[in-house]
Amino acid sequence: MAKSEATSVNRRSDIISAAIEVFAEAGYYRATTAQVAERANISQPYVFRFFATKEKLLLAALEVSWSRVIESFRQVVETTSPELLEGKLIQEYENIQAMYQNEMFLQMQAQTIREDAIQETMRNGLKGVRDMVLAAFREAGIGKPEERTMLFLARGMLCNVAVAINLPELMKG
C-alpha cells in the first residue's frame, strides 16, 4: 500500500472513530458532520471527501461496530473448546461492551432509525452475529442451538439496556 493510500485509510478510520463518538453522544439526528470533523481534527470538507452524506458516515460506523463484534466472536469460536464456548462468548461480549461502549450506544440508537439503508445495515449486522453464534453452538453440540442463540442474543440486548440506563442488576444471573 502506498503512503498516500495508507494515510487515506488512517484518515477514514479516524473520521469513523470520531463519528462513533459524536453519534453516540449527541444522537444521529442532532450530530453534525462539523462536530465529527472537529473531533477528528480535520476540516468538514475533508469528511465529505470520504463520506458524501452523514448517513453514509453512519453506515460506515455501524459496519465497523458490527465487524468488531463478529471478528471478536470468530476468534473466540476458533480458540475455545465446545464446553466453554457459550461462557467465553458472553465474556467476550462483556469485554466488547466495556471497551467499545460508544459503538454499543450507536447500535442501540440505530435500531430506532427508520431509514431503509440503516435498517438493512442493522439487520445484516445482527444476522451475521446470529448466524455465527448459531453455527458455533451447532458445531459445539450445544443442545437446542436455536433457543440458546436466541437467549444469548437476548441477554446481550438486555445487557446493552442495563449499561445504557445504568441498571447493573439487569446483568446479574
Rank of each mutant, 00 (worst) to 15 (best):
V163K: 07
R148N: 15
R114F: 09
L58P: 02
L170V: 07
A31V: 02
F50C: 10
V76F: 06
I90G: 06
L106N: 03
R12Y: 02
E71K: 09
R123G: 06
A162Y: 12
E71Y: 15
Q119G: 07
E86H: 13
G128P: 05
Q119F: 10
G141Q: 10
I16F: 09
T149Y: 01
E86C: 09
K127W: 07
L126F: 15
A154Y: 14
D116V: 15
S4H: 12
Q109A: 03
V47N: 00
E115I: 11
L57E: 12
V76I: 06
Y100K: 06
M150T: 12
L170W: 06
R130T: 10
M157W: 13
T33F: 04
P168T: 09
L126Y: 14
S4N: 10
V133N: 02
T80E: 04
Q35L: 07
T32F: 00
R138F: 12
I42S: 05
Y29N: 02
S67Y: 12
M122E: 02
Q107K: 00
F152K: 02
A40T: 06
E71Q: 12
T121D: 07
L62P: 00
V129A: 05
L158S: 01
C159A: 14
I165G: 10
E83D: 15
V9W: 13
R68I: 11
T79W: 01
Q97M: 06
V77I: 09
M108L: 13
T149L: 02
Y29R: 00
N41M: 08
Q44G: 12
I165S: 04
E83R: 05
A2Q: 13
G141S: 13
L158H: 04
A98T: 12
L158T: 04
R49E: 03
I113W: 01
K3C: 09
Y29K: 01
I96W: 05
